[in-house]
Design a binder for these strands. Structure first.
Lengths: 272, 272
DNA sequence: TAGTGGTCTAGACCACAAT
DNA sequence: TTGTGGTCTAGACCACTAC
């Protein structure tokens, strides 16, 4: 490692904390340090590399931001262990049925009843929600916030919006208060069969509230799914789902038409 | 703000840098500071809050990790501006055709020819790749790495794998060297019509190589798409696609079957 | 009690960008 | 030249965890 004199500001090479981070990273990726292993303490790293504590801390912060390590107060810094992944499969053409409720299904498979907390409010549509529901901004909607739990621990957040124009006055006006639950059965019960679902997936750093509620470590982003249910071209419900990205994989299966007469389908390389 | 005496370690409240971060965050979210606006300099924040520089820097680092601000050396710290989003739509039931090459389509729509660089290698399948292609580990594959460019700037990385057992000896053995390009047309040309595509979406912090190549700022994760093309149940190509999460939204449209006799489809609340 | 990471001060020199 | 963020030192007290 290139050692620099105090205060030379980097003339002799890259910053020390970057060099140390690189060194530690390769020790992790090469398998020298395995998942769950403890990194040398800050004191050890200080003497190992002959630098001050802040340099060591910045180096470790780099690895933490990359999601490679986790710090535990009073215990040390550890190589992050891979999280168990929940697979959320949508639209598998080979499945007997389409599973639009993987949370409930997974919970049942594990012998647990799916649990969630919710809070329903009658309110008005914001500009964004109005656009997704194809209604006028300010129009009446029913908003329900969910927290889904596994072993009592929140693992998914969701907020749904339904236009009162569709459900108002029916037994299912409030999603969790009627005789039927589940979006598709509920809409079926008032004669509206949902024909398709559109999901828009993005990812970003978690908000402080999400970090706290979902117990998300530094360096782990969230995936946000904007899901909208349609009856033909009419949106009947839309919701935002937020999950920790290290615990979920979203799988989509999409058919390719028999032949593309226009010759543009799949015209690029894989990913293009 | 709760001021603490030096070295009291937090008895009187939350850490100073958290309080300062909270204050700055609310000034951003309340619209007091808008996208593109410059935050007070570190020197100003030091005197504004009466703390040392490291506290100010940690506070700003929090906001940076949340993706709210970007630092520019020699200029200042700025509220991040929303990035133009490329929408990648897969499986829209109302579209005339399925667009499996949104990159090329988007480039053409903008009046530019899509550009990419690639590098093809004959190699053997790793355990992971073998599993995705349903072949034996160590089996021969053709591996092609792509960098997709817009205005000369890389915006997407992709690595594809095709088993030589399928393409070997045909004109399309190497994806970019044959008479036909594009996964679907290429496979069509050797009598294998792709029936469906499976995409598995995850998100994580970018690797150093990805940060550099794709020019990803602090606090922005990447989305990784594992895409596999199938002829019936036989995988014929798989690839990994990596994009910056603040510049892409992945949209999937999935049909819901006419009626679910087993009564489990959509049985949970939205997101459940 | 000892070791760990968490927070904080005071001060220094540096590289980058605009004027 | 001035102001910005980038890197770094030396030292302090604190809270958490395990023994």
């Amino acid at each position: 490692m290139t050692r620099r004199t105090p205060g030379d500001g980097g003339r002799q090479g890259r910053p020390l904390y970057i060099q140390i981070a690189d060194d530690l990273r390769s020790r992790i990726l090469d398998g020298d340090l395995e998942a769950g292993d403890k990194l040398p303490s800050e004191t050890e790293l200080m003497s190992d590399y002959g630098v001050s504590r802040i340099v060591v801390r910045e180096a470790v912060a780099v690895l933490q931001a990359e999601g490679l390590v986790t710090k535990r107060h009073g215990k040390g810094t550890f190589v992050r262990e891979p999280q168990p992944i929940r697979r959320r499969v949508v639209g598998d053409v080979h499945a007997k049925r389409h599973d639009t409720s993987p949370f409930a299904t997974a919970a049942k498979a594990a012998g647990k009843s799916p649990e969630w907390e919710y809070q329903t409010r009658h309110t008005t549509a914001s500009k964004v929600v109005a656009k997704r529901l194809a209604i006028e901004p300010g129009g009446p909607v029913v908003r329900t916030q969910y927290r889904f739990l596994a072993d009592g621990q929140p693992i998914m957040l969701s907020t749904s919006f339904e236009p009162t124009a569709i459900t108002g006055g029916t037994p299912i006006e409030e999603p969790e208060a009627g005789p039927v639950t589940g979006v598709v059965p509920r809409m079926d019960s008032i004669g509206r069969h949902i024909t398709h679902v559109v999901e828009e997936v993005t990812a970003r750093a978690p908000r402080p509230y999400e970090r706290e509620t979902l117990d998300i470590p530094q360096g782990v982003p969230v995936m946000k799914i904007e899901r909208t249910y349609y009856v033909d071209r009419e949106p009947v419900e839309t919701c935002d789902i937020v999950v920790a990205a290290d615990r979920y994989a979203l799988t989509y299966s999409v058919p390719v038409p028999a032949r593309d007469s226009e010759g543009t389908s799949g015209s690029g390389p894989c990913g293009g």
